[in-house]
Simulated scan of single mutants.
Amino acid sequence: MSQILSYMDASATYTIPSRPLTWLITGCSSGFGLALARLVRSQGHRVIATSRNPAKTPELVAEFSAEGHHRWETLDVDAPDCGALIARLEEQEGVQVDVLVNNAGWALYGVAEHFSEDEVRRQFETLLFAPFRLTRAAMPYMRARKFGIVVNVSSASGLAAIPSMSIYGGAKAALDAVMRTFALEVKDFNVRMLNVNPGTFDTGMLHQLQYQAATPDPAYAATNTGKMLAFMQSGEGEARGDMHKGVRAMYDVVMGAGPHKDHLGEPQLPLGAGAAYFVARQAAQAQQTLAAFGELSKSCDKPEPEA
C-alpha cells in the first residue's frame, strides 16, 4: 500500500516562463470564456478564442482579429476530431499552445429517473469527452516542451449532490476525477492542471439552462427535486458570483500572481462562497465517514505479514 501511495504523491515544483503565453480558450462567445479572453489579452498574452459558430458573433471575431497575434477560430468541441485544431496550430503554423482552457459547456437539469440515455451521452460528450480530447491533443506538445497549463472550468455541482443536477453534476465530477489523475501523470513534465469549480456567477448561464424532454412523474412535485426544478424554471435564481472577479481569480491562480505564487501545485480552485461551502461540506462528510466506518474498513484487510 505504501508503494502505491508513493505513486499518488501530488507534490511537484512548477515553473512558468517569463514571457507572454499563448492561451487557447473554448466557449468564448459569452460568459467566463469571453471575460477570461479579454482579461488575458489585456495582460499582454496571446489569445486564440474559439466558439462553435463564430458567424453568430461577428463583432467578437472582429475584436479579437484587430491585432494580428490574436485570433478567433471555429471549434465544435463535440466533434471527434476537435483536437485537430491544436495539431494544426502546433505543426503547420508553429503556434505553441501554452495554456489550454476547457470552458465550453451547457447544463441539463431534470429528475435522474427520467433522463434518456441520449440526453446523458450528449451532456457527457460536451463536459467530459470534449475537454479530454483537447487535453490529450495538447499533451504531447506540452510534454515535449516541459511546460504547459490546462485549466478545466468545472462546476461546484461536481462537488456535491444537488437535486435536479445528477447528470450535469455527474459529468463535472467525472471531469474533475479524470483530470486529477491526468495531472499526476504529467506533473513530472512541468505540465500543470487546474480544475476550477465555480458556483453561480452572472454569466447568463442561469437563463440558458436546458431541461430533460420527459415530464417528471407528478410524485416528484412535492419533493426537494421538484421544488428545485420549479425554482430554476421560474427564472428567479440569483447568481451571487461576480464574473469579472471570478476570471481575475482564475487568471491570478493560473499565473501564480501575488500571494498565489506558492500555490501552483494546488489542483482545485473553488470560486464563490457556494463552492467554498461545498468543499468544506466534502471535508466534513469525509470525517463523518471515517468516524462511522474507518475502523470497519481497516478490519477488512489481511493480517500484516510477520517480520
Rank of each mutant, 00 (worst) to 15 (best):
residue 175 L to I: 11
residue 175 L to Y: 07
residue 176 D to R: 10
residue 176 D to M: 10
residue 176 D to T: 12
residue 177 A to G: 12
residue 177 A to M: 14
residue 179 M to K: 08
residue 180 R to S: 13
residue 180 R to T: 12
residue 180 R to I: 07
residue 181 T to M: 09
residue 182 F to Q: 09
residue 182 F to Y: 13
residue 182 F to S: 08
residue 183 A to M: 10
residue 183 A to I: 07
residue 184 L to F: 07
residue 184 L to E: 09
residue 185 E to Q: 14
residue 185 E to W: 10
residue 186 V to D: 01
residue 186 V to S: 06
residue 187 K to F: 09
residue 188 D to I: 04
residue 188 D to H: 15
residue 188 D to K: 14
residue 188 D to L: 09
residue 188 D to M: 11
residue 190 N to H: 04
residue 190 N to S: 06
residue 191 V to G: 00
residue 191 V to E: 00
residue 193 M to A: 15
residue 194 L to Y: 00
residue 195 N to P: 01
residue 195 N to L: 12
residue 195 N to E: 06
residue 196 V to R: 03
residue 197 N to R: 01
residue 197 N to T: 01
residue 198 P to M: 03
residue 199 G to C: 02
residue 200 T to G: 11
residue 200 T to Q: 14
residue 201 F to D: 00
residue 203 T to S: 09
residue 203 T to E: 01
residue 204 G to Y: 04
residue 204 G to W: 04
residue 204 G to N: 03
residue 205 M to I: 15
residue 205 M to E: 08
residue 206 L to I: 13
residue 206 L to V: 11
residue 207 H to D: 15
residue 207 H to C: 11
residue 208 Q to I: 05
residue 208 Q to P: 00
residue 208 Q to V: 03
residue 208 Q to W: 04
residue 208 Q to G: 10
residue 209 L to W: 10
residue 209 L to E: 08
residue 209 L to A: 12
residue 209 L to I: 13
residue 209 L to G: 08
residue 210 Q to H: 15
residue 210 Q to L: 14
residue 211 Y to S: 01
residue 211 Y to H: 03
residue 211 Y to N: 02
residue 213 A to I: 04
residue 213 A to M: 04
residue 214 A to K: 12
residue 214 A to N: 12
residue 215 T to P: 05
residue 215 T to Y: 06
residue 215 T to S: 14
residue 216 P to K: 07
residue 216 P to C: 11
residue 216 P to L: 11
residue 216 P to V: 08
residue 217 D to Y: 02
residue 217 D to M: 05
residue 218 P to Y: 03
residue 219 A to G: 00
residue 219 A to P: 01
residue 219 A to N: 02
residue 220 Y to L: 06
residue 220 Y to D: 05
residue 220 Y to A: 06
residue 223 T to R: 09
residue 223 T to P: 05
residue 224 N to S: 14
residue 224 N to W: 13
residue 225 T to L: 08
residue 225 T to W: 04
residue 225 T to G: 06
residue 226 G to N: 06
residue 227 K to V: 05
residue 227 K to H: 07
residue 228 M to E: 12
residue 228 M to H: 12
residue 229 L to V: 05
residue 229 L to E: 02
residue 230 A to K: 07
residue 231 F to D: 10
residue 231 F to L: 12
residue 232 M to I: 09
residue 232 M to K: 12
residue 232 M to Y: 12
residue 233 Q to I: 01
residue 234 S to F: 02
residue 235 G to D: 02
residue 236 E to M: 12
residue 237 G to Q: 15
residue 237 G to P: 05
residue 238 E to F: 13
residue 239 A to I: 01
residue 239 A to M: 00
residue 239 A to D: 01
residue 239 A to F: 00
